[in-house]
Amino acid sequence: MELLSSLDLLRKDRIRTPFNRWVDDLHDICGSFRPSSMDTSLDIHGEARRINACGMEFSHISNDLDRIHRDWDDVRRDAVEQLFLIVQLEGSCGVEHSGRQSALNVGDCILVDSTKPTTFHFHGKYSNHLSLNVPGQLIYFHDSDKLNVARTLEAANPMAVTLRALVAKILSTSESDAQAPDLRQTMLDATRQAFVSDLESLMSFDSLNDLGSSRLQMVDVLIDQHLTRSYLSAKWLAKRIGVSMRVLQLHFQDMGMTCTTLIRDKRLRFAREKIKQLRFQHDAQTIADVAYSVGFNDLSYFNRCFKDLFACTPTDLLRSTDRSLAN
């Protein structure tokens, strides 16, 4: 924690923020989460703010709330799939995510997926954490990687020490620095390596007693692992998890979507992140190349679906400097 302690991140309990403004800031930075306070008429000790450094985005969240919750309705409301690499800076909090319950203490790290319900418990006690916001597919898109989301790395774990050191380095590095691209890639690689696991362990959480929930989680992992493959389809997924197409459709019906829609939207979100990266690259890759690389065969269909989901065309995104389009 020594490197992070040297930055302007600690003792944010000295800052007082009106409850409604704090909630608005959180929504602007992290998406649809529902904060609950012991008393909403009182100011919150802490703040929710965005930090941009080295071409990466962080959320710096401090508060003394009761809890912050995100359910399936909130997940569907957001059009962004992100992973949050959280480093606990001060205080502690409890985390419920992907069927696991964890306690974060100072220096601990955890990986949280925005596409899954999550609850952070504070019980009115001050907590301060830093979150690196990473587009999910930049971490998931490796055939050999099976991420153990919701795994907690205790402060003394060598990988937690490495992650904190990299975060500190990134926070003190300008995006224009010649080393910034390599540093960003090192951060992504280290995060992936820190939370890699076997698929079997991902599917064996004791708390996943509900068969439907377990199957949906298996489907979610399989989609992320095979996202750009031409064979990925609802039929292929049903066969992989050993159910009929009808059973798979019923599982998704309970979530208010279809398996095909989930695959399409994940591909679109991956494409959006790749298009955003084109603005920092100088190769000859085009939007069409991106569309085909993430699994679309029809460019017109890709453009139409992209605009429907993100309210802008791929070309608009590539040319835009407006954060409302770029985020």
Results as ranks from 00 to 15, higher is better:
Phe310Arg: 09
Leu138Cys: 10
Thr228Pro: 12
Cys312Leu: 10
Asp210Tyr: 03
Ile15Thr: 10
Ala165Ser: 11
Glu96Gln: 12
Asn297Gly: 11
Ser62Trp: 07
Thr313Arg: 11
His69Tyr: 10
Leu183Gly: 04
Leu183Val: 02
Ile110Trp: 09
Arg267Cys: 01
Arg151Val: 00
Gln179Met: 00
Gly256Arg: 15
His27Thr: 04
Val196Met: 08
Arg229Thr: 01
Gln225Leu: 07
Ala103Cys: 10
Ser293Ala: 11
Asn209Gly: 13
Arg49Cys: 03
Arg323Gln: 10
Phe270Val: 00
Thr152Met: 10
Ala234Asp: 12
Ser300Trp: 05
Tyr126Glu: 08
Leu222Lys: 12
Trp236Ser: 05
Arg67Phe: 11
Thr152Asp: 01
Val134Ser: 00
Met187Leu: 12
Asp298His: 14
Gln249Asn: 15
Pro18Phe: 04
Asp265Ile: 00
Cys93Pro: 03
His60Gly: 12
Asp43Lys: 15
Asp113Lys: 10
Ile241Tyr: 02
Asp39Met: 10
Gly91Arg: 15
Asp265Met: 01
Val75Met: 03
Ala155Arg: 14
Gln101Thr: 07
Leu153Val: 01
Cys109Val: 06
Ser233Cys: 05
Ala238Asn: 09
Gln217Gly: 08
Asn105Leu: 04
His226Thr: 01
Ser174Asn: 14
Leu171His: 04
Leu211Met: 12
His129Ile: 01
Leu163Pro: 05
Phe296Gly: 15
Arg34Asp: 07
Gln101Asn: 08
Ser131Val: 02
Leu147Trp: 01
Ser201Asn: 13
His282Trp: 00
Val221Leu: 14
Leu9Gln: 06
Ile139Met: 11
Cys109Gln: 07
Asp283Lys: 15
Pro158Glu: 02
Ala326Tyr: 06
Leu227Ser: 07
Arg164Tyr: 00
Cys30Val: 12
Ile15Gln: 12
Phe302Asp: 06
